[in-house]
Amino acid sequence: MRRDACLHALAAVRGEAIVVATYTTAFEWERIAPSPLNLPATGAMGQGSSHGLGLALGFPERKVIVLDGDGSLLMNLGTLVTIAAARPANLVHFVCENGTYEANGSHPIPGAGVVDFAGFARAAGYPHVFAFDDATVFAAELPALLALAGPVFAVLKFVPGDPVPTDYRWMHGKATRERFKAALQGR
């Protein structure tokens, strides 16, 4: 399935959820579903899900969605254990699996096509684990998935789709995080 098809499906049901997205997916997510409640998690690979955990614990009444990368998650596999142990009911952790370090030349990740991310999450103790490779099925099951008491983990196996324009000034700029803070405070 294509990444943009996945993200359009998520955008349709996102509501007021906070979305923490990493790298190339963060650019495409902002293009498809622009919102001050989007936080691009970059600069330190692997930290998106840890940011999501902090946000989920800090805002227990809000849904927090992480759009992690497969290369990013490999840099912080312990996060799966930490999140599963903390058990934030409002956290949904997607890992976007395309098998490459897409933002850094599309080199294959170690273990591409072999690593079982859903197996990692299941073994770490996530109570709900899914894997999708069909956008139609994903769109159909997404509302029920988001209604589960988390933490929820789902692998999204996709191909990139059309090239995604990148804007690292937006991604790293102070204005992006100030916009996020203002939205969280209802300003």
Binding site: S50, H51, G52, L53, G54, G58, A85, F180
Partner: peptide, 23 residues
């Protein structure tokens, strides 16, 4: 609320996420 970490750098981001929530 104690969050036991697997690795310290997780904690940098968790504290940052909590700060966004005013915690």
């Amino acid at each position: 609320r104690l969050i036991r970490l697997c690795k310290e750098d997780e904690g940098i981001s968790i504290c940052s996420g909590l700060a966004y929530a005013g915690k």
